[in-house]
Amino acid sequence: MDKLLTYLNSLAPGAQRDFAQRCGTSIGYLRKAISVGQRLGESLCINIDRESAGAVRCEDLAPSVDWAYLRRSALQAVAQPEAA
């Protein structure tokens, strides 16, 4: 969560609101989650990773999730599409 806080603090207030909105949440929710050490849902983690252009990675937000496995699974699915 430290990386998320650092990232948010690097943005102007309007950019913080825009970032949170693109992630599907509010800046208030993100700040509250950071302050209490709340676990973020996987979908929100992915949105934050995407919208921060990798500055805040899923692994930073939810280290208990096996993101490497999920990424490998996604790559395999793209490489081996289902037969029609």
Rank of each mutant, 00 (worst) to 15 (best):
D2Q: 13
D2P: 09
D2F: 10
K3M: 08
K3D: 06
L5Q: 13
L5V: 02
T6C: 06
T6V: 12
T6W: 05
T6N: 12
Y7L: 08
Y7M: 05
L8S: 10
L8P: 08
N9P: 02
N9V: 07
S10C: 11
L11P: 07
L11F: 02
L11D: 11
A12T: 14
A12N: 15
G14A: 03
A15D: 06
A15F: 06
Q16Y: 00
Q16N: 00
R17L: 01
F19H: 01
F19G: 01
F19P: 01
A20P: 00
A20S: 10
A20C: 03
Q21L: 08
R22H: 09
R22V: 01
R22W: 00
C23I: 12
C23D: 10
G24H: 13
G24L: 14
G24V: 12
T25C: 08
T25E: 11
T25L: 06
S26W: 04
S26T: 15
I27T: 14
I27N: 13
G28C: 06
G28H: 11
G28Q: 12
L30R: 08
K32H: 14
K32L: 14
A33W: 02
I34S: 07
S35Y: 03
S35E: 10
S35M: 09
S35I: 03
S35T: 10
V36R: 06
G37E: 09
G37I: 07
R39E: 15
R39N: 09
L40Q: 08
L40I: 09
G41R: 15
G41V: 07
G41L: 08
G41C: 13
E42Y: 00
S43Q: 11
C45S: 09
C45T: 07
I46A: 15
I46N: 06
N47S: 15
N47Q: 15
I48M: 01
I48D: 02
I48N: 02
D49V: 03
D49Q: 07
D49N: 12
D49F: 08
D49W: 10
D49L: 03
R50V: 05
E51H: 09
A53G: 04
G54E: 10
V56M: 10
V56W: 11
V56S: 09
V56N: 12
R57Q: 15
C58S: 13
C58L: 05
E59T: 11
E59P: 04
E59Q: 13
E59F: 02
E59G: 11
D60E: 04
L61T: 13
L61N: 09
L61I: 08
A62S: 14
A62V: 13
P63Q: 13
P63C: 12
S64T: 08
V65R: 02
D66C: 00
D66S: 03
D66H: 01
W67H: 04
A68R: 05
Y69K: 12
Y69V: 03
Y69T: 09
R72P: 01
R72W: 13
R72H: 15
R72Q: 15
S73G: 00
S73N: 05
A74Y: 06
A74L: 10
L75P: 01
L75Q: 14
L75Y: 07
Q76D: 10
Q76Y: 08
Q76I: 02
Q76W: 05
A77L: 04
A77K: 07
A77C: 00
V78I: 11
A79H: 10
A79Q: 14
Q80F: 05
Q80C: 02
Q80V: 01
Q80D: 04
P81N: 03
P81A: 05
A83G: 02
A83P: 04
A84F: 00
A84T: 01
